[in-house]
Design a protein around this nucleic acid. Structure first.
Lengths: 181, 181
DNA sequence: GAATTCATGTAACTTGTTACATGATTTA
DNA sequence: TAAATCATGTAACAAGTTACATGAATTC
């Protein structure tokens, strides 16, 4: 459901193709709501069937045709309704493979587990770097209307990544202080 | 894929029915890997088809029959192999509806957004309380072999919930300091 | 010459969610 | 007497993932 509203929301800024949308997803809300290109195309078809978006085709020379989607009035209404309505369940579960492995840690070779955690830390640091870049970009190029909200949503991804990083660090310390059995 | 290994892992402690497994999920790894009962039943059928688990039926008087699943040697092998093998992608995305709404915050009534955040905070505090209970239970009733690992996996959920809580608090402050447009 | 970008999707498969169906026993 | 617990699932649908297919233009 929310993917639909993420798309409607992004289209409320400007009309875009599925391909454009994928790029905007990756540059803005990827960390809080990722989407595959194939998912975006499927969702756009569905939204067009419900008259929440409409498309028109722009022919290009030497490039594939662009199928440009834009919000309809109906789509804008549904978006605003969704945004301004408190959800009953806020649940945002992380399915976390590393934490799952940790639960079964007694069956895992200690050095292997530490290696996995160190790899995780490397990846999370990269995520944090990317988020800093996105943050900087928003700071010096977006409208005053949106700036604060966009920064806050980026902050969410940042705080989660920080929490994951710090968890992995504590785990390594704990594992290293454990005497071998 | 990981749901299968979560089940195999839990069955490595003792044989259980699907119903038992659901209770164990909810009391242990729910925060890092939730599962619906219907999902567990489906997965168990699949695992039995691959000979990773076997079942036998225990007849009961005045209660429905219990279909008890246990790990096979093959299942134990696959579990250990999975646990001791570094995954190529660690990505644990949170799809977070509240952060998504925040991104589109300029289109949301300020008081409504604050209300949503406050509701979120209430729920996260409850989650943290539950995690404290699980933590306490593990501390005074599980084996030395597993204790540390279980506590670390619970800590993961705890750190995430704390991050979400603190994010929501910052958001409320920011929103309240914004002059109305 | 190889990889990336632009741009469209479809198809198949795996997971996750929600609703339905059954029915006795126990607790509030 | 209403709700929760025990215990099994199935069915339908929604969402997420991965692979396949096409093909020119541009950048490294």
């Amino acid at each position: 459901m929310s993917l639909a509203f993420a798309i409607l929301g992004l289209l409320s800024y400007k009309q875009m193709t599925g391909y454009d949308l994928k790029n905007v997803f990756d540059a803005s809300i990827k960390n809080i709501w990722p989407a595959h290109l194939s998912q975006i195309y499927r969702e756009l078809s569905g939204l067009e069937g419900k008259d929440l978006v409409v498309s028109h085709t722009e022919t290009q020379e030497s490039r594939p045709d662009r199928k440009v989607y834009s919000l309809t009035d109906k789509g804008r209404d549904e978006l605003n309704q969704w945004l301004n309505q408190t959800p009953q369940n806020f649940v945002s579960f992380t399915r976390d493979e590393t934490a799952l492995r940790m639960f079964f840690g007694s069956k895992i070779d200690k050095d292997e587990m530490i290696f996995q955690l160190k790899t995780l830390i490397k990846q999370k640091k990269e995520t944090i770097d990317v988020l800093h870049e996105i943050d900087a970009q928003i700071r010096n190029s977006s409208s005053e209307t949106d700036k604060k909200f966009w920064l806050l949503s980026v902050m969410k991804g940042y705080k989660i990544a920080e929490a994951e990083l710090s968890w992995a660090e504590v785990c390594i310390e704990e594992l290293e202080s454990m005497h071998d059995s």
